[in-house]
Write a protein that binds this DNA or RNA. Structure first.
Lengths: 162, 162
DNA sequence: CCTGAGTGCTTGCGATTCGCAACTGGTTGA
DNA sequence: TCAACCAGTTGCGAATCGCAAGCACTCAGG
């Protein structure tokens, strides 16, 4: 995190921050799962992340400017992690990864629903980013009619589950 | 590589294959740099990948079905790595990462040109995929007029350098 | 046939990171 | 007061990383 980048290539720059087996998983849970707290990210994580790994990843994500941490959050207090604009902008990367994984890797239908829905609707991706800006950055939304993006994703998930 | 996936989530499935500090870099050099041989990938790599790491990554990429290796390639012979359709389909992931890195990380102008050009032109991305299918899979292209996608990228690079 | 350059790796080694489990030090609510 | 909850930290064995050599093989030239 502190040291020089390996090169000035844009892809390398992104990989140096996001290119490990856990960072994108944590970010996914914040973006799609609405997780904002340490315990929530740890216990409700599908892949079973360990507490020390989670702590290290959150620290790095804050250092890299993808998340911010509540200043009031000390030991024992319920701290809150918040997405920055840079963090929200990783959504297209998630969608691209999900689209690829859906097509070229084994997935379980229930968990892959999100990826399928988002892959088919660029508009929904934009709506979700607007919703994240509202929740995490306090940016008010305009032209907001009908169910929210996360609500649409939830409905698609439930439809696939039932 | 052999073991069970951590979960059935599409994003996790993609991360388990692509989520480490080197895999996407190797793939980038094959896709954008036209590298097809071990030595070429090692010595002409911007970030200085080590030979054992490169060997391990190539092995994993072949196992995962993103690359194939020339059967004729034994020790001492010049072996050739070829992209599969699954490998070619990682291009949108590269573009998304490049677009993000360009915007939210420090990059050097020269090396970031590719990312900038591709971020601004979805059509060029599609053309590059068609070109990769022609080179690696032998799929003939139709409606192909003017300079190729890689040629356009090269011209953009030289324009930025000079 | 020999030699030297080029090929794709493998091996050894110290340092870092991973994954698991237990533990710490604080807050909150009854 | 006290159990439950919260955000981590610490220890430890195993795996991986990054670096430097070395190995096995082929091929072209003399």
């Amino acid at each position: 995190m502190r040291e020089e980048p390996r090169s000035g290539c844009a892809i390398n720059a992104a990989v140096e921050v996001l290119g490990d087996p856990w960072t994108l998983i944590v970010l996914r849970d914040v973006i799609f799962g609405g997780r904002r707290h340490f315990r929530e990210l740890m216990t409700r994580n599908e892949e079973g992340i360990a507490s020390n790994v989670l702590a290290a990843r959150l620290r790095r994500l804050v250092e890299a400017g993808l998340l911010t941490r509540d200043d009031a959050a000390r030991r024992g207090q319920r701290g809150t992690y918040t997405l920055t604009e840079a963090g929200i902008k990783t959504l297209p990367v998630m969608v691209a990864l999900g689209t690829w994984g859906l097509r070229h890797r084994p997935t379980t239908p229930r968990l892959a629903v999100r990826a399928r829905v988002l892959a088919d609707s660029p508009h929904l991706v934009a709506e979700l980013m607007a919703e994240l800006r509202e929740i995490h950055l306090g940016v008010p939304r305009e032209n907001h009619t009908g169910p929210s993006a996360s609500e649409q994703l939830r409905q698609a998930y439930e439809a696939a589950s039932g």
